[in-house]
Amino acid sequence: MQLQTKIYRKENSQKIGGLLKECFKDLFSSHFLSKQLAIRDIKSQYRQSYLGIVWAFIMPITSAFVWVFLNITGTIKLSDTGVPYPIYAFSGTLIWSITKESINSPMAITNAARSVITKINFPKEALILSGIYKLLFNSAIKISLLVVLIFAFGISFHWFLLLFPFSVIVAILFGTALGLFITPISLIYNDIAKMISLVLNLLMYLTPVVYVVPDKGLMKCLMELNPFTPIIATTRDLALGTYPDYLLYFFIIILICVPMLFIGLIFYRISIPIIVERLNA
């Protein structure tokens, strides 16, 4: 049997292709590990709580409820959404929460694994993959809830609904790819995580989460530039069976998402040893 040889030296002498190949090799070989980590996190998350799974959607529902309340009482005047407003708001906050969770996922999961990554050498890609598994699990719950609500509000079945889970996956992958770039820096400086959460909170108002993109003006321009707009809008359109307005931009996002995810994974891979060093020093 040929023994595998590992060489550790200062510079990473590999080309991007080689790194990517190793990255994927580790991703596939760590399939079991990532599954195990995801199960561990999900189990322990719900074992220490009574409400358990309810927490997954209590936040988006509450914030949707606030908007529905503001709208119904006439406190704020929103332009027509084309579908019953409650379902518009619920779908928006749910999809937004999935995207937000995806961006935070690599950061949160790497941070939680601090004690392990500084002691045991294992494929770090497993952490990312387990993060995606967790996102899929949590999103599946949210999606199911949303589907129930859709029918409860009397929206009839449309075949677009079948495509809806795929666009949720796009949202998850796009979020994860973004998260991968932020993670190494955020592990070094705590400020980053706080900044991200601040930016995301503000960004929500530039995204058609609880109101539609206006017909004209600066807001329209900003919202249409915002890369989250096509993700949220298209995903909701597919769920509610309305025609997706930002389909082209959505496809561009998908095309950008793939190389971004690859580069993000490589960046993450080569950054971890530096992070481990600084966490220990």
Partner: peptide, 13 residues
Amino acid sequence: GLIYPDAGKVVIK
């Protein structure tokens, strides 16, 4: 393999 050297190299089989 948790951290990388700043000079020299390590070969492990």
